[in-house]
Simulated assay, not measured.
Amino acid sequence: MVNFLKTVEKAKWRIMGIKNVVGVGVGYKHVGMERTQQKAIIIFVTKKEDLGNLSREELVPFKINGLETDVIEVGDIRFLEEDRKKHVRPAQPGMSVGHYRVTAGTFGAMVRDRSTGEPLILSNNHILANGTDGKDGRSAPGDLIFQPGEYDGGTKADRIATLIRFIPIQKGEAPASCPIANGVARIANMLVHTIRPNYDLKFFKREGVANHVDCAVARPLSPDLISDEILGIGKVQGIIDAKPGMKVKKSGRTTGITSGVVTAIGTTMQVKMDDNNNAYFSNQVICDMKSQGGDSGSLVLTEGNKAVGLLFAGSEKVTVFNPIQTVLDKLNVELL
Rank of each mutant, 00 (worst) to 15 (best):
N276L: 02
I286C: 02
T267K: 11
K29A: 15
I265S: 03
S298C: 01
G134P: 00
L331N: 15
P223N: 06
D50K: 12
P179I: 11
K135N: 04
S251A: 09
R78C: 00
T36K: 04
R159I: 05
L221I: 08
D275V: 13
P220Y: 00
A40V: 02
G208K: 06
A176Q: 12
P168N: 01
L331T: 14
V213S: 04
D274G: 14
V111C: 12
K205G: 04
Y28E: 15
T116R: 09
P141W: 14
K171A: 07
G252T: 03
Q237W: 06
P244T: 00
I240N: 02
S227G: 07
N276A: 06
N20G: 01
A188S: 06
T267P: 00
F312W: 12
R14P: 00
K63L: 05
E68A: 15
A216R: 14
V192D: 08
G66S: 08
L163Q: 09
D158R: 00
V26Y: 05
F4H: 10
I41E: 03
I187S: 03
L331W: 15
S55D: 13
A11P: 00
L311A: 10
H212N: 07
D288V: 03
I15F: 12
E82R: 13
R253C: 02
S222D: 15
L328A: 15
S291E: 05
Q237T: 06
I15A: 07
L310G: 08
F204M: 06
I77D: 02
G149I: 02
N322R: 13
G294E: 08
V24F: 06
G297V: 05
F312V: 05
K249Y: 00
P244E: 05
G131Q: 11
A161Q: 12
V45Q: 02
E58S: 06
L299N: 02
V26N: 10
M190L: 14
L59H: 04
A174Y: 11
I265A: 04
R138A: 05
G294M: 03
N124T: 04
S227T: 03
I230F: 00
N277T: 12
I195D: 09
L201Y: 09
V261F: 03
V24Q: 09
A157R: 13
S227A: 14
K250L: 05
E57F: 01
L336D: 10
L311E: 09
E229G: 06
S282Q: 13
F44N: 04
E9C: 07
T319H: 12
E229K: 12
D83F: 15
V248Q: 09
E173G: 03
A174I: 15
R159K: 15
G117F: 13
T194C: 01
G294W: 01
T268A: 04
G183E: 14
L328E: 09
R14C: 02
V262Q: 06
A109T: 08
F312G: 11
L80Y: 11
G134Y: 08
H30N: 10
L311Q: 13
N332F: 08
S298R: 05
G149M: 04
N65K: 13
K85M: 07
K306R: 11
R89T: 14
G234F: 02
L67V: 15
G137Q: 07
D274K: 08
